[in-house]
């Protein structure tokens, strides 16, 4: 199996406090992988250091066997929705257009082709009618879909998403997971920081359990076990029903909105 993302010995510290300690992680091509773990476990930091946004103290990241810097054009990124100011004076279409900037040269302005790509991405997330709205006028779920559309406009091979289901309603969650499945069907790789343990077996093929260290990673039916979850969450694991652990999702589970 081809490895899309290969993380070796990744260690990240803020000041003298380690946030990630010696993490190894391989993401095979063409899977939906969830990264789960308690708050403060370093999930977002794992994503950010993979993307070169946070400088690791040690370790390496390779994308299809090459350093990240050479493979940027194969990567799309959905940051946490709360990471930007939604009152910024710009339109939905402008934000999605930003997904094309990585493919534009330094002095080229986005033109007709870029606008068409951005509109197509908006169409995919069912926000085409909102193209000219100011981004602050959207609901939280719509804002999340704008970020998703921007990533789709990047037309990448690997998609990194930081909590794309955060604060969206059940309908939006359905819409987003359908898009992720379409991506997988097209052979893309999707890595998602996720916090809802209830939906892991239903949504994802692979899962990485992180709590500063890597606890376990691999196919959901192998590693999403009660023992691993206890090792990851410690005593904080209360909500999970044992029936959901390491059992293939048979029925369509209700999608819980936050």
């Amino acid at each position: 199996m081809e490895i899309a993302v290969d993380i070796q010995d990744l260690t990240v510290a803020y000041g003298d406090k380690p946030v990630l300690w010696d993490v190894d992680l391989q993401v095979p091509r063409g899977v939906l992988m969830a990264i789960i773990g308690p708050n403060g476990a370093g999930k977002t930091t794992l994503l950010k250091s993979t993307l070169g946004l946070v400088k690791p103290a040690a370790g390496s990241v390779r994308i299809f066997g090459k350093p990240y810097e050479q493979q940027r054009h194969l990567i799309a990124y959905v940051p946490q929705r709360s990471s930007v100011d939604w009152d910024f004076p710009t339109t939905v279409l402008d934000v999605v257009l930003m997904g094309r900037y990585g493919h534009l040269g330094w002095l080229r302005r986005p033109g007709r082709a870029e606008r068409a790509a951005a509109l197509a991405a908006l169409e995919q997330v069912q926000l085409a009618d909102f193209a000219h709205r100011q981004i602050g006028q959207l609901s939280g779920g719509q804002q999340q879909r704008v970020f998703l559309a921007r990533a789709l406009a990047q037309d990448a091979e690997i998609y990194f998403m930081d909590e794309p289901f955060q604060g969206v309603d059940a309908v939006t969650e359905r819409a987003i997971i359908n898009i992720l499945r379409d991506l997988r069907a097209a052979g893309k790789t999707v890595v998602v920081v996720h916090h809802d343990l209830q939906t892991v077996t239903e949504y994802f093929d692979q899962v990485a359990l992180i709590n500063v260290r890597r606890i376990a990673a691999g196919p959901v039916h192998d590693v999403f076990t009660e023992a691993n979850l206890r090792a990851t969450y410690g005593g904080r694991l209360a909500l999970l029903e044992t029936s959901r652990v390491a059992a293939p999702a048979s029925s369509a589970a209700p999608a819980p909105g936050d």
Binding site: L51, G52, S83, F88, D94, V95, M98, W106, R150
Partner: peptide, 17 residues
């Protein structure tokens, strides 16, 4: 375009290089 992107979303800007 770059100034606008960096002002709005510096993390994303860095991710595209």
């Amino acid at each position: 375009p770059q100034v606008k992107l960096v002002t709005f979303d510096p993390d994303f800007a860095r991710s595209i290089g």
